[in-house]
Design a protein around this nucleic acid. Structure first.
Lengths: 201, 201, 201, 201
DNA sequence: TCCTAAGCGAGACGGTACGTCAAGTCTTAAA
DNA sequence: TTTAAGACTTGACGTACCGTCTCGCTTAGGA
């Protein structure tokens, strides 16, 4: 008699070694600058020392493979609970800045954000697992700021998130293009400017 | 013997019809949502009713073809000289918003901004002809604002540009993803929030 | 201690059901017109409801499987002991003709004789179990004919066998190709012509 | 203005070098004992130093390629017009015997005759270009023999053809199997036996 | 009643070849 | 010399089987 529930399916179980090798090969290739379109299953199979079938058996297409591969890298959301709203916001934005420092993360972001129309599922997944949590964390900080009176009570919180994240993204794009690192105090300067406003008073 | 000066080269002159057909076909395909990577010279040639050689003779690679094709669309920079800094900024940002309304522009932006690492020259050209002028125009407005005392004298103007453009870009990305149009008053709300600052006073 | 002799090997005995299912599936597929080269072990296993391993455990390769499968069909050699040499020869040749009437036998012959170079063992077996006995039977008839004086004393018996069998084979080939049945009296006509000779006297 | 008739099609003409290389590679491989089923387009392409497309552009499938390849080898039908029917028949049969002496011809025959059901078009072509002409030549000889009174007036000519060719084929099969050469005087012995008949008078 | 050994179906494994497609280059006759 | 057409080599695509290998389970005889 067998214990009910998730009965192990018949036949030889899929090799975890193979799976890992495939994912690693995919990430390697992406890390070397291969775009999703350029990434060939054949190359992944060769690099992983695996038959093509073994890849096709698990993933229906490149997108899903890349999606799963990127998912294994999901960096943990930093938990920053500082004393002031400003400190927290700076911390969150600075994480975004630091992400751009490692080649791998840069490549991944490039991939994930590059062709939302072309690889919608990919973008969707990236959005759910990477963007949305960060947005939520930032929202919490801003709402706390409004609650404590630190921030304007009529502040459009979604808009504020957009301003902070969008600005950092703008710089990230530029930095990726110029291949120059972002200034250490960039996050602080963005937050300060946003908090204070441009007007003279 | 040939007449000196801008001597007309020997042989059959290049067909302008062919050139135009090629560029049109390229734009058509891009407008239909074909990414740069997916865009096949074969398809362009077929659509244009032209031999592949005729394309390769004029452009060394896809990038240059796409670059030239996009260049023919360069929308004129709007000349907005309003009464206040706020009005001008809103006007500029709103042009960006309106750009997202037409499918073709959306596709082009997607293409141009999608893979800076993959197609650096393409991004470079787009940057020079589309982004830099807009940035310059915005910079002029902000400098005028500082000069007139409307804006803080210590305002980091580059950062301010980044905040305004980046925020709009952030929304544009989101809208492209959700396929929802941007609110009519978005530009105004961004500018107002930026001018005022988030703080309570 | 075990009883000496053909000691039953340890472990679970091989399933006769499986063996039969495999052979039947093989014959079915061959009967449906699958050539040896086209015959896939995978298909046999699927048709037999059996794991591939179960096949490979018993047969080293396709040839042996097909050989054993065909061997199970070995039709009994007809025993014809007529009054005259002519009657016996006609009887033997007519058996060959009748063999071509059933699809299965036709397929089998096709297979067995098709690629002696490719599947030498297969041909060898077919030769030993099907051709050689018939040849021997025919040889006996001819030798009896020579002994009784019915046939020329200097008749080259091997050659005579070749003429009779080869002629029938020639017709069989042609019939397989045109998909037309062989005439009922073909065997008799071949034998008569062979016995009499072509010359006018 | 173009000369009418078989107007040369536009574009680069197909390379005769490539065509020849492909056919040669095919014949080489067949000559090395590769069966039709085993023959892989990939191998032909590699051996010929040619892209697979170049093969598929010209031939829809293996059969047609092999057919055309074999067709280039079509040995000329020997013209034998001897003094007697016997001499002519012996000459024709001996050509068949000699064909079995060269490896290449043996392979080709094997291929061509091996799987009529599997490669019907191939067999059809072989039949039309190789078998039918020989049959016709032999028929002419036999009819001449009947006309001159050398042969029985009621001789079944088609049957006679079958007896002569079939017998030689029977020996050919056997020789291919045993890898022993056919006796030099085989053709003569077959013809003599056939002309004379088996009976004692 | 267990233990040991082998067979069982299932199905994953690394491969090879398939036939298709597009890449970018080359070669022709005509313009 | 450029044109359109279309051949060229190259290489990835996704599929089908190959023959081997693991799984957990079954089936038997002997301890």
């Amino acid at each position: 008699m067998t214990v009910m529930g998730t009965a192990r399916p018949a036949g030889r179980p899929r090799s975890e070694r193979a799976e890992k090798a495939i994912v690693d090969a995919t990430l390697d290739l992406i890390g070397e600058g291969t775009s999703v379109s350029e990434l060939s299953i054949e190359a992944v199979a060769a690099r992983a020392g695996v038959g093509k079938t073994t890849i096709y058996r698990r993933w229906a297409n490149k997108e899903e493979l890349v999606g799963d591969a990127l998912a294994t890298l999901k960096a943990p959301l930093p938990v920053v609970e500082g004393r002031t709203v400003r400190e927290d916001l700076v911390a969150y934005l600075d994480v975004m800045r630091q992400d751009t420092l490692t080649l791998r993360t840069r490549c991944i972001m490039n991939i994930a954000m590059s062709e939302p129309d072309r690889h919608p599922n990919l973008y969707e997944r990236f959005h759910k697992t990477a963007i949305e949590p960060r947005r939520a964390a930032m929202r919490a900080v801003l709402e706390r700021g409004v609650a404590t009176g630190e921030l304007r009570p009529d502040l459009d919180i979604e808009l504020a998130i957009g301003m902070l994240s969008g600005t950092m993204l703008w710089y990230t794009k530029g930095a990726a293009h110029n291949n120059t690192p972002l200034a250490d105090d960039l996050a602080a300067r963005i937050v300060d400017e946003a908090l204070r406003g441009f007007l003279s008073r």
